[in-house]
């Protein structure tokens, strides 16, 4: 069973880290979570991003969600936006692909070109 004592421990750990990282959002991951995205499997994708970031102890990347952008056939769609506003759009995402995007793009800064909307449209 998860206990509130565990939550206290998490709070303490986080409070020690906060001073280091305050106001420092290195990247933002935005998952399309409208009806079309949800039906296509967006929620497990968002969950995979969160789990993967936790596993790697990355806490300067924010995961959030947005509505329908009108490309429903390409859902689940994920935007990865860096602190300069540069955006990479990944399409037809899966939890497995999410793990690779974290390892290569988020950690090492190498875009997973084969998952991008550009690669999909050139097929």
């Amino acid at each position: 069973m998860k206990s509130l004592a565990e939550l206290e421990a998490i709070r303490k750990k986080a409070q020690e880290q906060i001073s280091v990282r305050e106001g420092n959002e290195r990247m933002r991951i935005v998952v399309g979570m409208a009806t079309c995205g949800i039906a296509a499997g967006a929620r497990p994708v968002m969950n995979a991003f969160l789990e993967e970031l936790k596993k790697r102890n990355i806490n300067d990347v924010k995961v959030t969600m947005t509505g329908c952008i009108g490309a429903c056939r390409l859902e689940p769609i994920v935007d990865v936006i860096d602190s300069n506003g540069k955006k990479v759009t990944y399409v037809k995402m899966t939890p497995e692909k999410a793990a690779r995007v974290v390892a290569e793009h988020i950690v090492n800064g190498r875009v997973c070109v084969d998952y991008t909307i550009g690669a999909e449209e050139n097929k």
Binding site: L7, I10, R11, K13, Q15, L50, L53, K54, I58, N59
Partner: peptide, 12 residues
């Protein structure tokens, strides 16, 4: 219980 730690902290 969080005493200012954001609710969207990944561990939380």
């Amino acid at each position: 219980y969080l005493d200012g730690v954001p609710i969207d902290n990944i561990d939380v």
